[in-house]
Structure formats: C-alpha cells, structure tokens
Design a protein around this nucleic acid. Sequence first.
DNA 1: TCATGACTTTATAAATCCATCATATCGCAG
DNA 2: CTGCGATATGATGGATTTATAAAGTCATGA
Lengths: 137, 137
Amino acid sequence: MKEALVSDTKLDHRPLYEVKANLFKGLAHPLRVRILEVLADAEETSVTDLLVDSGLEASHLSQHLSVLRRHHLVVSERKASQVFYRLAYPQIADLLAVARVLLVEILETTQQQLVSTVDLPPVGRPAVASSTEAAAK
Amino acid sequence: MKEALVSDTKLDHRPLYEVKANLFKGLAHPLRVRILEVLADAEETSVTDLLVDSGLEASHLSQHLSVLRRHHLVVSERKASQVFYRLAYPQIADLLAVARVLLVEILETTQQQLVSTVDLPPVGRPAVASSTEAAAK
DNA sequence: TCATGACTTTATAAATCCATCATATCGCAG
DNA sequence: CTGCGATATGATGGATTTATAAAGTCATGA
C-alpha cells in the first residue's frame, strides 16, 4: 500500500496522500508559483530580484518565501546583506512543467467546449448561459 | 512570456502561474488526492466504491468530488442509480507521480537531517531541541 | 556606536477552506 | 404515484490562509 512508504519512515506516520496534499498547499498561491518559476530559471535569485519581479512589498514577499521554506521547496543563503534563494530540489521544476502540460490540456479542452456552446443555436437566453459558463471557471 | 499562452486564450486572461495555483488548490486536500489516486488505478470508479475506500459520509465525499469536478480534474457519468467517476485527463496521474518522486526526495533529505541532528552531542537541553525540530515539520 | 539597507518576524483582520448536517434531486421498482 | 437507494446541493460555524502593516534582526560602513 502507498502508506507503507511513509509508515516505515521513523518520525512521520501520515499517509503519503496527506503529505502530497500538504505539498500542494505550499503551491496553492499564485505568487508562490511565480516565485518557484523564477527560481527554476536561474541558479539562484536574490530577494531583491524577486521583489522587482513580483512588485510586492518586502514583508509580503518574505511571508511567501517563509511558506516555501517551511514546505522545503526553497533554500536560502545569506551573502553579506543580501539573501539568495534557489529551488530545494530539481524535481520541483519537473512538477511545475507537468502541471503546465496538464493545464494546457485542460484549457484547450474547456475552450473547445465553450466554443461548441457558443456555436449552438440560441436557446432561451444564450448570453446569460454563456456568462454562467464563464463564471464556472 | 508564460502569460502569453493564456493571454491569447479568448475568455481567460489570468496569468498561467495563477491558473496553476488554482489547480494546486484543487489538489490541496488529502481526501481529494486520495480520490484521484484511486481513480488513477482504475478505468472508472463508482461513488459507492469511493465511499467504502474513504469511509466518508456520502455528502462529505460529494462535496470533495464537486471541487474536483469544478477544477476539471474528474468527470462523472451516471448509469441508472449509480454514478461513476474517472480522471478527466491522464496527465493528472503524471502529476501525482511526479509529486510522489519529489516527496520521496524531500522526505529522505529531511529525515537524514533529523538523524544528523540526533547524532549531535547534547547541547543544553537536547530533548527540547529535538522536539522543536519535530514540531517544525 | 549609530544609521541604513536588506530581509524576516509578529500581529491581525478579511477571505477562503473545511467539516458537518440538513435538504434536495435522480433513477428505479412496485 | 410512492418509497427508497444513491448522490448532489445548500447552509453554516470553525479552522486555516491571505493581505497588510508594524516591529525586529542582520550586515555594513562611517
């Protein structure tokens, strides 16, 4: 069973699907995804560069970086008065890439469905139906 | 730029990293990961089977399935009085697999770090320091 | 030591998610 | 049509996350 992997680990008895969900929680914010993508494109990135990219206030960015650290997704290194971040594991970039592939598929499919709906002849109030559809996602 | 992909899409102008984060939100609950994993192992699965596997009350499971449907992660099909679910895209299984690889790496590394800490000679109150370390994750 | 730039932590209100229960809907058989 | 099994939806309070600003810490140069 999948839990067996984690059960054998000395200090953490949570099922793997629970640990996975926790990982996804760490990824479940736009800015944190953005940060990871920027980090995936460079060896390491200074907080200053991340601040410029994100347009955030320093404390706001730091809060998100803290979440990423806590989830073991990034590691930081201080060099004098500057701090640099990098991805903790190369597999994180893999995960983001696979997610992208999936999303491309989802977006293509759902857009096709929207187009199909739009091509249908009017039934009642098509304008309302179409805005309901858009609101669903 | 990455946003260009989504910007060209007719109805959805959100940056891709935002759409990705939304995808991860759909995945950010243990039971929803579990459900997807069960679905990944079969062609299709009845709600009844999912109820047995999860041990949930019907309405609780249904709420989670609703989230998965809304995120386009599963599709449902009613056959008489029973409803069957399956993964909406095969790439979802890929995503879960990559996440697993990443987690294995993370868990191995963090466990090694814990072991290294335990091997250190006592400094002050090792018992307290060790429980602080465990609480950190 | 002090001032300052760089970055982190603390604190807190608002927003969102989760757990749970009540109710509604769908399909089938009698 | 009614009853019932199967499943979905609505509602709501508690828990967690997010957004934001204030305060704190670290490193450096004068």
